[in-house]
Each structure stands twice: as C-alpha cells, then as structure tokens.
Design a protein around this nucleic acid. Sequence first.
DNA 1: CGGCGGTTTGAAATCTGTCAAGCGGGGTGG
DNA 2: CCACCCCGCTTGACAGATTTCAAACCGCCG
Lengths: 225, 225
Amino acid sequence: MPTSLALSSAYDATLNRLSALAQLTPEDIEALRELLGEGKPVTQPSIVLSGWAARTRLFSDGRRQILGFLLPGELIGFCSQRDPLATTTISALTEVNLCAAPQQGSAGLAEAYAFSGALEEFFLFRHIARLGRMSAYERLIDWLLEIRDRLAISGLSVGDSFRVPLTQEALADTLGLTSVHVNRMLQLLRREGLIVSRGGMVRLPDPARLEEIVDYRPAVIARTQ
Amino acid sequence: MPTSLALSSAYDATLNRLSALAQLTPEDIEALRELLGEGKPVTQPSIVLSGWAARTRLFSDGRRQILGFLLPGELIGFCSQRDPLATTTISALTEVNLCAAPQQGSAGLAEAYAFSGALEEFFLFRHIARLGRMSAYERLIDWLLEIRDRLAISGLSVGDSFRVPLTQEALADTLGLTSVHVNRMLQLLRREGLIVSRGGMVRLPDPARLEEIVDYRPAVIARTQ
DNA sequence: CGGCGGTTTGAAATCTGTCAAGCGGGGTGG
DNA sequence: CCACCCCGCTTGACAGATTTCAAACCGCCG
C-alpha cells in the first residue's frame, strides 16, 4: 500500500496517486516505474511526474484565467484538448517533468485513468462553484483544501502541510481576484491563525474549521469494489 | 445534411446535433430515430431530446451555482457523475425529454459521443474563464453567444434568434451574479440595441459587435476528415 | 550597490450586492 | 367576469466587497 509513503523521488508521487485510484497489478506498477524513470517530454497523453502545470486562458487584453492545475500524478490530454477545441494552453508554473502515459495496461490501470478523468471533471465543477458563488475569503480556503487533498493523493501532503509554488498573482488568476486582494485575504487568514505559511510551504492548523466555513465536500475515493 | 433543418419535432434537434459532430451512417440515424421516438426517462447515459436541464451545486446556506446546461441533443452521464463523486445534481429547468443513448453503433456514432464530451469540457473551461475574469456585462454577452452556438448545432437557433427559457434568477445563478444585477445588465444591453427579447425569445441584432466585446472564440466543429 | 520580482500597504474609485418597494401578467376561485 | 394572489421583472437608495493606482518594502542575485 503505497498510500502512506513519504515524499521521495519524482515517480513515487505518480505511483501513489494511480494506485490510490484503482487496484494496480504488480506488472502495471513495473511498467509505470520503467516509463516514469525516463521522464522524457511528450505531447501525447501524459502523466505529470513532478512540478505544477496549469491550463490557462489568456484574453486579448492581457487578462488571464487559470482553468485548472495539473499536479504530480495527474494526467494530461486524455479526454481533453481534442483537435479543434484547443483554446487553452498548458504551461508549467515550476519545473515540470512529464512522461507518456502507458496506453494499454490492466483493467486496473484503465480504471485509474477513468477515475482520474472523473476527478478532473469534479474539480472543474468545484472551481466553477467557487468562482461563481464564493467570496474571496471563501475561495482561498476552498482552494487550499482542494490542493491539500489532491496533493495528499500522491503523498505530497504531510499532515496538512504542503508546498504551494505559486505567486500571489498566479493565485489571483486562479481565484478570479487581484493579487492585491489575495494578499489581503491571506494576511487575514494568517492573523486568524487559520493558515501558517513560510517559503512556499503552507500548513492548515485547523482544517476542520476551514472545511466548515466553506461547506467543503471532499472527493470520495472509493474503489469500485 | 440535416444541419439546415428547421425546428420541428423533438428528435430532429438531436439528429441535427449528432450528425453535425460526426459522420453518421444511415443505420445510426435509423437506430437513433427509433430510440428517440420512445423518449422514456432513463438514468443511464442519455440524450436530451428537448428542453433545458442544468447541473447544479447547492450550498448549505441556500446559495446556488449552475455548473452547466444540458441542451437538446447533448449527452448526460458519459464521462461524468461517476459513482463516488456525485456532488452535483441535474435538474430540469423546463419540461425535459430524455432517452437512453445507443451504447454501440458505428465508429461515427462513437466519434460523435467523443466529440460531444470534448465540447462539454470546452464549455466548462469557458464557463470558468467567464466567471473568473469577466465583468457582469461581459458574462452576459459571452453566455448568450455560447448558447446561440450550442442551440445552432441542433438547429434550434435561427438566424441569431433563439429561445432562452430561464428566469433571471436562474441566469444569475449561472453567471455568479444577483438577479437584480442581471436585470440591470439586460436592460443596458437592450438600450444599446445589442439584444432584443420578448417572451423568452432572444435575438442578437449585431453578433459581430458582441463577439468583439468579449473576445469570443467559437468552438470549431471540424470533422476529423 | 543597484535592480528586479514579488509582497505589503493605503486611499479612493467602481462594481456588484442588499434591501425594500412597486409593477405586471396569468391563473384561480368566488 | 372580476378580485386576488403569486411569481417574476423592474426600480431606487444605500452598503459592502473588490479593484485600481501608486508607493514602499523585502530578499535575492549579479
């Protein structure tokens, strides 16, 4: 059960995540381990090995909206970005390592992919609700909780501490706010003791309180059997 | 080529849309026509025959966000709503007729489904950008243009006139605004001569101007060959 | 040391929400 | 047939959240 592994090499995160989403055979894991070891950049359906990437829409007048993040262990280009519809750009926010996703594997691997796709859609829905109906304060909290959970799936979140390698400007472009206002809300949360952050690391001392504030509903990861 | 059919019976809209998305065989069309004729309500992957439905998130304090619409000819439950993730509700906004989607058909039908899924994701991305980075005025315009295009695929939009069976409150829950403000923006657009509406019908006299205002990028529907 | 990107701060402007009341049409029951 | 009611649309005055603009601050690197 790799779910409780500590942070270590780049592909551990991916293995953690995929085997959290479905039951993988030892052969699947071996196949993944081989591929992940190479880490060559691809444009095919891929897996993020390490780093943060973002799907972005840029407006002609310079406004920018981050549509979603691609975190370690998450998949790119499966159901998405079909030929004629590529109005969105995927760009790396940090150093990113990709690798091609194994196309055929066991039913377990296919299930992990499918589940990953469902999760992606789930996060899109949550992002919409966040932008449409939450205050700036709530948006920040809700987003932090989501990122905590997503990183936890890959084992990159340790006891409500995790790394967020974003500028406040990028965060603003995610949450539909200005960087100035993101700054103010972050300070408020810090003053209230609801977040502790230093050098890109974030800790949530009282997650239960945060979840209550935003009526947070985690994505339930329940294997089909 | 059914793309230019006038509005007629319920299943014409669906046939129009699916054959706009991919090349269907006469057998596909016949199979669809049979199924669509029945119109029995299902919980399986389904096709909206007529009417508007919406995927909605309700907050515990009563706030509501409409995550997306399901219009005639569009598909439900394909990539979506996997078991553990059903935090969203689909509800009918008007009388809705559904039918089960034919599960196996020609490659053309499969392609139409895949394309439909890609379109759905595209609309989700656009919705996010709309909510995150557009003013109330722009959100309204952008949404109207999208609906015009989506209805046009099923032949339900005639020369920039189409039917929008929503209350201003529902529109507000879509665009992340209050109904009061939606009302004001609608009046502004009417005063400016950019929209004409009566009894649920909307006409856009100067779509080019609208598209320019919001930097509108239509979803390109290009067959794979 | 100077410059640079990112963060922090303040004051004022703007957009959007809130509250509350009036209006209008369509349906229902007397 | 009319009175009434309900829901959705409209309007106004006001409050509040968020943006804008501008400057200062900070750590880091060349």
